[in-house]
Amino acid sequence: MSAELATAPGHDAGHDDHGHVSAENNFLGLPNIKLAMWAFLGSECMFFGSLIGTYFFYHGKSLGGPLPTQVFSLTITSISTFLLLMSSMTMALAVDATRLRKLSQARAYILATAVLGATFVGFQIYEFSQFVSEGLKLQTSLFGSTFFVMTGFHGAHVTVGVIWLTMLSMLISNGKLNKDKASVTVEVAGLYWHFVDIVWIVIFTFVYLLEFIK
């Protein structure tokens, strides 16, 4: 496996984030931080896979209400879903700008991403408080427990991402971000952010939309 990977396919030649062994790059010529992020995201797949799986294991088994269709608001959730999708796009644009060494432009995109993410979290806080006022709490039913744990962990991930992006933009403002390493630094933050987005794509479809299709 490693031999095949080490003899890199031709199109990788000249890639600006690898090519030699150094403190940042490992023996495959790949940036360690990026490799680590993909491995971490792999483990995150298992993490969220278990949470979503547990939600469906107990789906429809609650002994009491409220039911999902009684509390879900498609309007609210679709707005926040759209915001998160758009934040993924601005993040991709930020990575693109960093690659072209347009750091101030990248900073604007990163900030836009953080603002969209923070808005998403705001929507989630509103949604949770609505659910609680309608009688759905963590301890109310199997639906309440599995739903809040699953979406709560997702919201926590978004929050961590917002903090990360805010710090990145501050680093750029202060000129503390090494221009040579900026490409990988921002790309890795982007990978995390996109992952948080795809988790929501799955939750939105399976947990919310399918409920209204039945």
């Binding site: 896979g49 799986g53 469906f56």
Partner: peptide, 26 residues
């Protein structure tokens, strides 16, 4: 690079399997 693909897609497949099995087991 393929190693990123490998690192991400294999646990993703495993997670999907867990998800499907849990739903069936339910």
């Amino acid at each position: 690079r393929k190693i990123y693909y490998f690192l991400f897609i294999s646990p993703l497949m495993l997670a999907t399997t867990v998800f499907v099995l849990l739903s069936l087991l339910s």
